[in-house]
Design a protein around this nucleic acid. Structure first.
Length: 216
DNA sequence: AGAATGATCCTCT
DNA sequence: GAGGATCATTCTC
């Protein structure tokens, strides 16, 4: 295949990933979704980046070649999926924060401990989301739904079992704003999401108004 | 060896 | 909107 778009500069990858398809071929079935929200992390200069103080065993993959998965555990229980960017030696990645389920949504629901979508049975097992789109609207949730764990850390995201198919089509309406859940470098506008999509984890209505006529 | 810190999610008010 | 869960990783002593 042609040179992957994942070799582009980090912020361009973060933009270009919106609309791309994330696919996981699991033993129990094929799961996929459209990426609708991303965040860029780029060291040096970004104190929120895991690698801002140098290489450690955990963030080692970020220093490697682009196009690989950086998967780690947050708060001791949630997996986070990142796409490594930039040439070897430069620590950078794009966090996938939300996807829109396309294939295998019932298996995703099962992975999340939820009843199948469309089934109204109230067996009492598992928790019922207050909104039907609580399936993959968050970095921890989408990893749980997609069956992504530590065993995929460092794997090549251009081939199965976990891979990304680029978006090819008309320009999508993007919103650019600040990142979520961090305490350092909070001012950097390095989060991107698909305007109007229901699976975006957190909207920024101020940014949406300010960017009303802009098209990403 | 001990303490602090999270790129979060869920529940309850 | 606020707080607890829960533990790997990292920093500090």
């Amino acid at each position: 295949m042609a040179e992957s778009f994942l070799t582009l500069p980090t912020l361009e990858v973060a933009r270009a990933l919106i609309g791309a398809m994330l696919v996981h071929e699991t033993p129990r079935g094929r799961l996929s979704g459209r990426i609708v929200e991303t965040e860029a992390y780029l060291s040096p200069g970004d104190d929120a980046c895991h690698a801002y103080r140098g290489e450690t065993p955990r963030n080692r993959v970020m220093f490697g070649p682009p196009g690989r998965a950086y998967v780690y555990i947050s708060y001791g229980l949630h997996y986070m999926l990142n796409v490594v960017t930039e040439a070897p030696g430069v620590a950078a990645a794009v966090l996938i924060r939300a996807i829109e389920p396309l294939e295998g949504s019932d298996l995703m629901a099962a992975n999340r401990g939820l009843a199948p979508l469309g089934a109204m049975a109230g067996s009492g097992a598992g928790y019922q989301p207050s909104r039907p789109h609580n399936l993959t609207n968050g970095p921890g949730r989408l990893c749980q739904a997609m069956g992504i764990g530590a065993e995929l850390n460092g794997t090549d995201l251009t081939r199965p079992p976990l891979y990304i198919r680029p978006y090819q089509g008309e320009a999508l309406p993007l919103v650019q704003t600040t990142r979520i859940g961090i305490t350092r470098s909070v001012e950097l506008p390095w989060r991107f999401y698909l305007r109007g999509n229901r699976d975006v984890s957190v909207r920024d209505r101020t940014a949406e108004r300010a960017q009303a006529s802009a098209i990403g």
